[in-house]
Each structure stands twice: as structure tokens, then as C-alpha cells.
Design a protein around this nucleic acid. Sequence first.
DNA 1: AATAGTATTAACTCGATGGTTAATACAAGG
DNA 2: CCTTGTATTAACCATCGAGTTAATACTATT
Lengths: 236, 236
Amino acid sequence: MEPVRDLARTRDRILKAALAEFAAHGLAGARCNAIARRARVNHRMLFYCFGSKENLYREILRRKFTERTALFERRDDDLAGTILRWYEAVAGDQDWVRLLEWEALSTAPAQKLVGERERRSYISEALEALRRSQANGGIPRDLNLAQLHLSIIALAVFPLAFPQMTRLATGLSPTSARFRRQRLRFLRSVSARLQMKSPERSRSGAVREKPRTALAKTGSRRLSNPIRTMRAEVAE
Amino acid sequence: MEPVRDLARTRDRILKAALAEFAAHGLAGARCNAIARRARVNHRMLFYCFGSKENLYREILRRKFTERTALFERRDDDLAGTILRWYEAVAGDQDWVRLLEWEALSTAPAQKLVGERERRSYISEALEALRRSQANGGIPRDLNLAQLHLSIIALAVFPLAFPQMTRLATGLSPTSARFRRQRLRFLRSVSARLQMKSPERSRSGAVREKPRTALAKTGSRRLSNPIRTMRAEVAE
DNA sequence: AATAGTATTAACTCGATGGTTAATACAAGG
DNA sequence: CCTTGTATTAACCATCGAGTTAATACTATT
């Protein structure tokens, strides 16, 4: 028999409900009441457990990001494998895509991201893997790897991040089995081509570029904490 | 001397301020007060001119969409031209990207889009152009054109739609001149490759197979399996 | 210059919402 | 049992924000 009082269970429920609510409506649009109702928990418990709506949001992000990056253990796929793996991973978790998207829209340019450390380290590993692949001839020399990485994610994420565009372009929902099949096939063709050597370029001198220095380190800015303003400064 | 009372001017000011505010915060996050302040206009005038916040929002979208699609007059570029043109168009108007993104996040799957008619007709024209290009041999036969169209937009839009990812991957802001140069060069390489004929593909049915089979085939080195979770989902 | 119509304003309403107070129910230890 | 600490609850509070009321100032028309 379940005990009547069980804080851990309550926390879990809240977290689950909050994930759904925040993915659906973002930080500003989410309603504490809605979360509480969804979790079948008293409204007050949100604040008892997490202090504030924003704290709860951050906790959700933190968890989601670590869960997700754990999925991308270092693995040396070829380019096609990497792209397909990203697509599968993304297509399987729309909440994640939406959280990234809310983040994109409501994060000020200089603001520190939730889980930034881990995310940076994940990316530098991914870039390292691409570099190895490039060294092995699996990726053409003239492709900028950071741009490539960004584009892999773009190809994987975009249809789910912009479902309305997907529907306009293809007539399908990005979550439908039919679309997924189509997309997988397309991504396979694309990656096969990306792996090919470049056709002769007219300007052969243009290829050389300054070697990619590692990611710019953002100084650890420890700004005093006033999270007072709900409305974050955002690109204006 | 400017007249003291000028409704047209007031409307314009409101529209301009509203565009900025809605692009920054979305419909739900935008504040009527903020719009009024930014427009240096009495709060009441929003409702006098547009009836409601949502009406105003719709008006903004309507205008922006028609303005934008006008930019994409029919023009038969080759693939590279199309991609680059999209990128330039997108990189030059971040508000537009953000409006699309807010729309993506807050539109229900079945909901009718603002300006849907024009957008559909634009897309079918774009697809038609791609088809012509494909007929001319400018685009390989095996590429699904709707998927290609979607991917062109993805490659153009993504860095601006997810600036935090861009910053993580490249260390640059997607609006910086440096990034834009890098991106242009990258997109040129990519489109050159997309125009190439496919490498001979083993026709042995791998395409219809489960992804892991196809994946294992593409690599030159030993590969591990992609993530398993293609949850069967009742289609459409 | 009186009138009428309209653009603009100050001041208000009223519901929603994040967060709090304080009471209560429960479980564990003595 | 009784006490003590804590999980849970109901009721409340303050603020914010979209939308309204109604008064006022300006302009054109006669």
C-alpha cells in the first residue's frame, strides 16, 4: 500500500508534469496551476519542493540535458551514421526539441545556458570525432566542421522544430511514420553526397582557412543572482 | 509641423513597435504596455486601432508574411543559388525567423496558419522550380524534392533560429559577419555536393530495410548501431 | 463660433497567477 | 499516548495585464 505522504513521489510527479507543461508552453506560458493539476498535487507543493517556478524550470532543463547528452556517448560513426543517429534521437523526443526551441527564443545572447558545461564538452567531443573522421577521409577536407556539426543538427531538428513548415512542404506531420521514412531516406542520400570529394573549384586558393581554434571560452561570469525579472532581456 | 492627431501615424508606430515586441516575446509573452511605450502612444490606442492584442498579432504576421514572400519572386536559380538566396534572405531578418519560431511553438497541429493560402502557393511554386531544375539535371533524380525544400530552409534558418546552438558549435553569433561568411562558404560546398550524382548505391533493398542495415553499409569502418528508439507510432 | 465627429488620455475593472501564511494531518520515536 | 518534525492543504495576497469607461482635446465643416 502506498503511503499517504511521500515527498519523493510528489517531486517525481511534479517533475513529470512540469516537463510536459514547460515543453508545451515554455517558462512564461506555463501555468503553475496546470502543473499542479496535471501532477495531482497541491499547488503549494511546487513551491515547497522547488522554491519557484523558475527553479523548477531549470531543474527540468538540467535533467533533460543530462539525460539527452548521455544518449550521445562517444561513438565513432561515419558521417551518415552520425546524421541518422541524430535524427532518430531527435525524432524520438519532441519535448526535447521544444525545450531547445523555447531556450532559443528566450535566452539573451550573453546569458549562460543551463548545463552549459556539459553541453560544451559534448560538442567538443563531437567535433573531435568529426575531425578524426575527416582525417580518415570519411569527410571531405574542405568542409568546416563546426558548420557541419551545426548543419547535421539542423537537418535532424528542423522538421520537428517547425512542424508547420514541414506540413506545408510535405503535407505530412513530422512525427508520422511516413514522414520519418521519407526523411531517413533523404538524409541517407544527403550524407552519401556530403562524403564525396568536392567537384573542381575554380578558386583553389580559397580552401585554406585558419584552423578552427577550440570553442571560445566564455569567462565564468558569476553575476549576482537577481532572477527577479521574469521577462528576460531578449533580442530586441 | 507634424499634426498633433494623426491616426495613420499612430497605427504605423504601433505596428512597428508590435513587430519588435512580438518577435522578442511571442504573443503570450508580449506586453501591451511595452508596445504602447515603445510606440510612444497611449495604451488605449492599441485597442482603438486593432481591437485586441491577438488581432494586432495577426495583423503583424499577415504583413510580415506577405512582405517576405514578395521577396521570393519566382526565379529559376540553380540549387546553390536557391540555398544561398534563402540564407541571405533569412540572415537579413531575424524578426521573421523568430515569428516563424513562435508560430511553430504555439500553433496546434490542425490549426490554420496566418496567410496559409499565400504560403501554400509560394511553396508549390518553389517545388515547381525545383522540379524544373531536376528535369534539367541540376538536381539529382533520387532526391525527394519536398524534403529537399525543407532542408534548404533548415540549413538557412537553423543557425538563426537556434543562436545558442550556433554559439556552442562555432563560438560565433549567427548574426556576426564572420559567421555569415563561414556559413556562406559552407553552404556553397554543400550545394555543390548536393548537385552531384549519387555514388553507386547497392540496390539490394537496403533502402527499404531497417535503418541499422543501411547504416552499417554506408560506413567504411566498423560501426555500432544507431539508437534504437523508433517507437512505432500510429501514422498520421 | 458653434457643432459634430474623432483621436487621445487618465483612470478604472476584473480575472489570472505566482507566491505566502498558517492551519492540519500524518508518521516516527520515545 | 504524546511529542516533534514534516508533508499536505485551504485560504489568502499582491501584482500584473488585457481590455473598458468616460472624459477631453483637437480638427474640419458649416
